[in-house]
Design a protein around this nucleic acid. Sequence first.
DNA 1: TCAAGACGTGAGCGAGTATTCACGTCAGTG
DNA 2: CACTGACGTGAATACTCGCTCACGTCTTGA
Lengths: 217, 217
Amino acid sequence: MLKKLSEAKLQEILETGISEFAAHGPDKANINVIAKKSGVSVGVLYKYYDGKEGFFKACLKQALRALEAAIEEAIQGDDKILVRAEKLIRAIQRSAKENPNYNVLYHEITAGSSQRHAATLAAEIEGISSRAYVGFIAKAQEDGDIRKDINPRLFAFFFDNMLTMLQFSYSCEYYRERFKIYCGEEMLADDERVVQELLKFFESAFTTEQSQIPHKR
Amino acid sequence: MLKKLSEAKLQEILETGISEFAAHGPDKANINVIAKKSGVSVGVLYKYYDGKEGFFKACLKQALRALEAAIEEAIQGDDKILVRAEKLIRAIQRSAKENPNYNVLYHEITAGSSQRHAATLAAEIEGISSRAYVGFIAKAQEDGDIRKDINPRLFAFFFDNMLTMLQFSYSCEYYRERFKIYCGEEMLADDERVVQELLKFFESAFTTEQSQIPHKR
DNA sequence: TCAAGACGTGAGCGAGTATTCACGTCAGTG
DNA sequence: CACTGACGTGAATACTCGCTCACGTCTTGA
């Protein structure tokens, strides 16, 4: 079989798609423009992908795989919960710097145009991390590292909420502006400070006097 | 001047616009359909508003005003920080139940199609609440209600991040699904439980042993 | 060297939709 | 009661963009 399009070219097309979808949203992004910017014809997009929607899904999959890879290291192993949190925060900062568009694409699917697929997408994307986070927290409770009078699923939810907002705050225009309004422009560059303060937040959120006293007796 | 369109009718048109924009997104929502559903002609939309974008802005303003009104009570007065947090959480739950579409519209502007206006919108929308939140937290630090070794702006940011995600989790399809995945379907209806657990989260996040000990001496 | 057919090309088709404007309607005026 | 013009109407217009397909080009194999 003839394949004039190299693997590298296909990759380039996906990257172009990701940045266009990130810049204009799934509806406004223009297939003809994406083809032109990638240096291929529109026709080829329709040979390789199933229309605009199929192409968007391919871009999304690419972006999500990369995001998953970026945090994979942090959710493996059996670190203490705060060590894990630190790894996750740093992974988010790193990945937002390398490929903010991946986060923007992730954010797109939470918006209106993707509503029909909300249930499917959420199950695919949040399923793994939710199980991981609930697992950590339940384990940390058993180990006595965090307070026991909390619902692990809700706390995992709160935990991921913080991380998700951090992702967007480093990558999506609106949230970046909001970040600057709250914390000042310089904070956007002061990664270390954000890590330390967010860890303080988590550390005390997970702990109380009661849960710590037994260790000290 | 003749005004065949009553104030009530204009209101109805805005409400229709809000629900259509919420359902399909700013790009896919159809002006002709909105006109038909409101029982007026397209022409009138162009007489009263400056094109599709102008109409969207009007809908947005309407939605934001309502959201602001819903939380206004909670950010006034001089409650202790946790009392205020509770009021805010309950206000979010109430408003999400009454008008989820307002939150969906708010969420829309954080997405791709509104990028050009991100800075302006963020300044308008987040400005007030950010000043209020930073103020609370700084005040609470002075009063010794919360730990002093934190950056009030960052903590205000974290605080609002949690509340923002809660808003979306009650209103936007994707986030509702995610909420269910993390916490189970029944938690979406168990408002009281969410209030209590989120308050625990905040309470311990804001406090440490060190900051509490002085009170007990 | 030369079919044959695999593959990419991109002008153009057509459906969808934002916007306009010629017209009808009706309250106010003299 | 005729006239005026403010106002709403919605068919028509103009334009955008997803998608197709007739064509040219290049690889392969005999």
